[in-house]
Design a protein around this nucleic acid. Structure first.
Lengths: 361, 361
DNA sequence: CTTCTGATAGTAAGCGCATTCTATACATCG
DNA sequence: CGATGTATAGAATGCGCTTACTATCAGAAG
């Protein structure tokens, strides 16, 4: 004979207790439970006590979805980056995660592996999740229709009370509701090129970076301005854009060495490229910086691991991530007085002089 | 005179279109819209067409919370790590993110900065989000009450249909409903210590790692077993546990050098510690590996940047992350036939021989 | 011509919570 | 002692979606 026990006994509970369960156990209404949890309404000490005990006994865990649906924001921010392992993105992501946590938000991290479609799809996904802010990190490729797609999503996000924050990529225009965190690519490139020039270098190779990536374009522009500033010729043969990978730095430098190209310094589009270039130089027995000086950009940890240590341009990556969250959440420090909403933050860059540059021969 | 325009005109829409709006515009019921979106019920071509157009015109974006509340899982996995920037965690996180994406899940990444309370709080938060799986990464400290707290959360998660996956940390016991991804800490440590011994080293320093961290304990155990295996004495004075930081490696090695300690090789608890130790050796003018051999653990990228390149134990970190997701989502390959649910995955480790070890003097 | 069947579409009932409005029990005061 | 106020608790509604259940209509079958 099979006896139905109903709800008695320690059955393996398949689903978790709800607020109603807690209410029943505490002998109150679910409204009271809600009030105890949120503490935004007076509840007598005795009642609170009973409710809290019921919560503990039942192991009650609130349902964030129900809460979000009932009107309270879900308290998450989303961040879209290229690759979690790349220190450039990792540091920004860390800043985002920390600042988000500081504001009681959870952080959803998504990676695109460089795919545009994936990026757009992820914005939509984060929108569906009703993230308080969506942070898009990294340089963008020049592409009209793609920019339009992003703009459309920025508006959709805006319409539902969220914000798209562009971090390290150019704004989409005045009429698109986004916030932007910028760092001075052009200025940093100018400064470090000028540094090389004042060390006597005249023939400087520019190495790496996709030619249609906004980041490359800005760094190259700063580089050229410095050359112009010092009245140096602008030799197109010295510009070797390509990729931002270590492999590219290695291969191209190897090729340059093989063809006995004429240069005394290399400005790498980022530190990773510099690492590859220095490896090629090391293998070829070319001493750095005695024969060739090398500089990078970003100041990620590898810059300090290289021998000689790399002179490079420092970007406050983690701070960029934090700023992005502040902008997206509208919680900038100077938000107290009724200033117009801050929509752009610019973080500064500066040269870090280490050991990879020497005066030109 | 103020005229109320009601809903006419292109007002800045404060909230996004809902399914009902789409339904109204397409002249159908919201149920039909749902069916078009989910494609799990027959809808005539003409109707589908109209609905899709309405969706496009309104820029409709589904509300993931409402969907989740209505019974469908929210399709997210959560991962809790120590620090996003640390390559050890970053690689695992990448594996998790990629595998999650491959299964149509969004990935929520949270960092603890090593805090237990934060870790527990994050499990709860992820539970509230109704994540399909929660992945806890990294070694755990021996702590009875803490383990009990985690166990309680594992049960709660289980009760609501989710899964806690322990990644690189010991199981909580048979009766706690968790899944585990392990890698062979003890075996790797044994292997690399034995490698040092076969190179003639007798006095090997063990450097770094919190003494009560499960990872340290296992690596130290493997180290000791190798010594026993080769009948070498076990000198407690050579064990220098501490932290897993570069700074610790540097400082302690500096101290050992200053007190002229007697050893010919160093087994660092991880590659980061090794980097610090090698820096101290470099500064002291002690040639590696000629005078002192150094090995690490993890095989993160820094191992290849060091000069000489570091001999170390490779862990397939990204694969661990992927396995964790498969375990958590119950989608292992061999899930086709009715095998018992897989609860433990073990990934292998292997020695990577590079240039930081030479035969003992 | 009636009955049955299959393909579509609509109706409505929640999912679990926050919150507005309402109700009760006292304490306070004129 | 009745009128008013105050603290506390409950009832009920709705957030936007999924999904049983129900309804309709055409054509096939009898």
């Amino acid at each position: 004979m099979i006896v139905s026990h109903g709800k008695e006994g320690p059955v393996t509970e398949q689903s978790l207790a709800t607020m109603a369960d807690v209410a029943a156990r505490a002998g109150v209404s679910s409204a009271t439970v809600s009030r105890v949890i949120n503490g935004n309404y007076p509840v007598s000490a005795a009642t609170r006590q009973r409710v809290e005990q019921a919560i503990a006994e039942l192991g009650y865990v609130a349902n964030a979805h129900a809460r979000a649906l009932a009107g309270v924001t879900n308290r998450t921010v989303g961040i879209i980056i290229n690759d979690l392992v790349d220190p450039f993105y990792a540091y920004i992501a860390r800043g985002v995660e920390r600042e988000a946590t500081a504001h009681g938000r959870l952080c959803m991290v998504c990676c695109t592996k460089g795919s545009h479609e994936q990026e757009l799809a992820l914005i939509d996904l984060l929108h569906e999740q009703r993230a308080d802010a969506v942070i898009l990190v990294g340089g963008a490729y020049e592409d009209r229709s793609y920019a339009a797609q992003v703009a459309r999503r920025a508006r959709a996000l805006h319409a539902s009370g969220s914000t798209l924050v562009l971090c390290g990529r150019p704004s989409l225009g005045e009429d698109v509701p986004t916030r932007t965190v910028e760092y001075d690519n052009e200025g940093g490139a100018f400064a470090i090129t000028d540094y090389l020039i004042t060390q006597g270098h005249r023939r400087i190779v520019f190495l790496g970076g996709p030619p249609n990536l906004s980041t490359t374009i800005a760094r190259l522009a700063g580089h050229r301005r410095a050359l112009r500033f010092r009245d140096l010729p602008h030799d197109k043969g010295l510009i070797h854009t390509g990729q931002l990978s270590r492999r590219f730095g290695y291969e191209r430098m190897k090729a340059l060495l093989a063809e006995r190209a004429d240069f005394t310094a290399v400005f790498c589009a980022n530190d990773t490229v510099a690492a590859g270039a220095m490896q090629a130089l090391e293998l070829a027995g070319v001493p750095v910086p005695e024969a060739i000086s090398v500089v990078g950009y970003d100041d990620v940890p590898i810059a300090q691991e290289l021998r000689p240590q790399l002179t490079t341009v420092r970007i406050p990556l983690e701070e960029m991530g934090r700023q992005a969250v502040r902008l997206g959440l509208d919680v900038g420090e100077d938000n107290d007085y009724l200033s117009p909403v801050q929509t752009v933050a610019v973080v500064g860059t500066n040269i870090v002089v280490r050991a990879s540059v020497a005066p030109a021969r």
